[in-house]
Design a binder for these strands. Structure first.
Lengths: 348, 348
DNA sequence: CTGAAAGCGCTTACAG
DNA sequence: CTGAAAGCGCTTACAG
């Protein structure tokens, strides 16, 4: 069988007809014998057209290994279908899980993730400006806040910003959090119900709203129940931070309180290892411990951490809603709170 | 002081002059009294121009909060400065670390990451085609391989593909791995040196080259030393996989071998927890155990896992080199291997 | 050193 | 239902 040399047979080699990397809609139009506009319509399901023409175009496209250039499409349609995701806390597996779930959900909606790891909050300004140059459809920020002028810049550019596990009062900036204050109160109640009467909170720096709110709920509920001397230890949000925090707690108090609330499971793992390996304490006999996030490690039998569970899937649903819905942000509901539940295991 | 109404004063409001979301180079050109081409040049450091003209343009741009549209720039310059990253294994913190390091390195080079989590290898074909539509500058794939026709597609499109911790024989596809075979051999030698004479390998499915190669090095070195009966347990690359694998090992062998090589630290943690909590075994007294990756958990005192360290930073350097260098891929060096080192801790 | 103009690969009114 | 044409916001030869 002889293959036509003219290049307009459907049995094409698939090689680019132009000098660049790919075939374009013009190449497909030539091969299918239609206009370039018709090729464009054939790839847009919303465009009504003659089904047999569409099929002819798609066959030609497939012979030429053509697919529309998403960049050119973005330029003319003024929408990139790209969402920027900024994460600070990749050492906490909780956020690694959030990222994979986001990726799957967004991809099923035809959206892409432009990913940024923030090593230093001082880089936030550069980062936001860099992101805005890519004309993203939205920005999701986990565990970091914005300065209010950066928030204003995003609002000015008409780019929706959603904070995950942080919140701020700037109009136009949406936030999705779990109800950290209530979880703190629930933790106090749970410890009380179990009969504990001496406590401590081991958390992160107080500027982080998660830590601040968990502590506030915990301490204020204890006060309502007549406990006014709950020690609060500030320490980094890490395993090492947990170990170090536990050492400081014992130095400071002289003896170990009976019930410890840790700001995260990672901190909790550090507390447990330090208590056991450096002080020979048994958990929960000598001290009960509760963590937060219910990361996989919490279920490992070496730890078996009783931990607060965030309703991650519902929170992600809400984030995507806010990020991608066409409706203008209503000024009224800037913060959506989701309740946590306690998953009891061996440590409390 | 009276602000000019004409709109061509530098004391502009910063509001978009056009009806869309942002000011464009044309708005800046008007304000600065230059041509649009000159605005473009002012933002390209490589373009030589009168410094005072450049400054006037940059001032006008800043007054209008203008920055070049990266999408439009991508279209005309035929380079998006976007690299696609595909990850399968986000539950393994090793890859979370790789991702954050990649993010920092790429951003410092003015490149962005388009991130994809692969939940199902069957989705790879759709994924690659989706990525190619975005005209990325390169594709990095961790812990997954491509079918050879997908690899060919990428090569056809002129998009460099680099595999991280996988390799394949397709021309044009580069790979960066640690030397898993050698690490397996080193592990056998280390156990031998410590006096152990009964062994097992607990790993992932054998199609994964990491697991395959670590097993091969380990088993073949044992054979060179006269051990021909090393049991090999296939189990998922997870904590639960480790627990389950250890149970199967004991069922199968009746008694626990003295020296266990685990394909990853996560699997190793499962093995340790199962050995301790379900069988009451002590490590390393009853059995020595070695893991792989040196994730943070390996250093936790509850585990203290002796583990192989991959030279992550050097490997990432090489990956970026291959992904971004202009030079054509040389057919000769498809695979770059990096040596691992053993970090000894409590378990062996 | 700077401007006018072409063009990157699409989408989408506007006609017919 | 389809085509001709304008235009998205840039970069970059090509002149002057």
């Amino acid at each position: 069988m002889k293959i036509s040399d003219s290049g307009d047979s459907i049995q094409n080699t698939g090689k680019r007809a132009n000098g660049r990397g790919h075939n374009t809609s013009i190449d497909v139009a030539k091969l299918a014998g239609v206009s370039q506009a018709t090729v464009s319509r054939a790839f847009n399901p919303a465009s009504k057209m003659n089904p047999s023409t569409r099929q002819r175009v798609l066959d030609a496209a497939s012979a030429l290994k053509y697919a529309p250039d998403a960049i050119a499409r973005s330029l003319i349609s003024n929408s990139t279908n790209i969402v920027a995701v900024i994460m600070q806390n990749t050492t906490n597996p909780f956020y690694a899980t959030v990222l994979s779930k986001l990726s799957i959900r967004l991809r099923s909606m035809g959206k892409q993730i432009l990913f940024f790891y923030l090593d230093d909050e001082g880089h936030m300004k550069d980062l936001i400006h860099q992101i805005l140059q890519y004309r993203v459809d939205g920005i999701l920020i986990t565990s970091v806040t914005l300065t209010s002028d950066l928030a204003d810049t995003c609002v000015d550019f008409g780019v929706p910003v959603v904070l995950f596990n942080r919140y701020m009062n700037t109009p136009g900036i949406q936030a999705v959090c779990c109800d950290n204050v209530q979880a703190g109160r629930d933790c106090a109640d749970y410890f009380f119900m179990k009969g504990y009467r001496s406590f401590a909170f081991i958390g992160g720096h107080d500027e982080a709203s998660t830590s601040h709110d968990r502590r506030r709920g915990f301490v204020s509920r204890l006060e309502e129940r007549g406990i006014h001397d709950c020690p609060v230890i500030n320490t980094p949000f890490t395993y090492e931070g947990g170990r170090e925090g536990f050492r400081r707690l014992l130095e400071q108090e002289g003896t170990c309180p009976k019930a410890l609330f840790c700001v995260s499971d990672l901190v909790c793992a550090g507390v447990l290892d330090c208590a056991r390996s450096e002080y020979g304490l048994r958990v929960p006999e000598d001290a009960a411990v509760i963590g937060f996030d219910d990361i996989e490690l919490a279920s490992y039998s070496a730890y078996s951490i009783t931990s607060f569970v965030q309703p991650m899937d519902s929170m992600i649903d809400r984030v995507l809603d806010l990020l991608l819905s066409e409706k203008q942000p209503s000024e009224s509901t800037n913060l959506t709170l989701f309740p946590c539940t306690l998953k009891t295991r061996g440590t409390a």
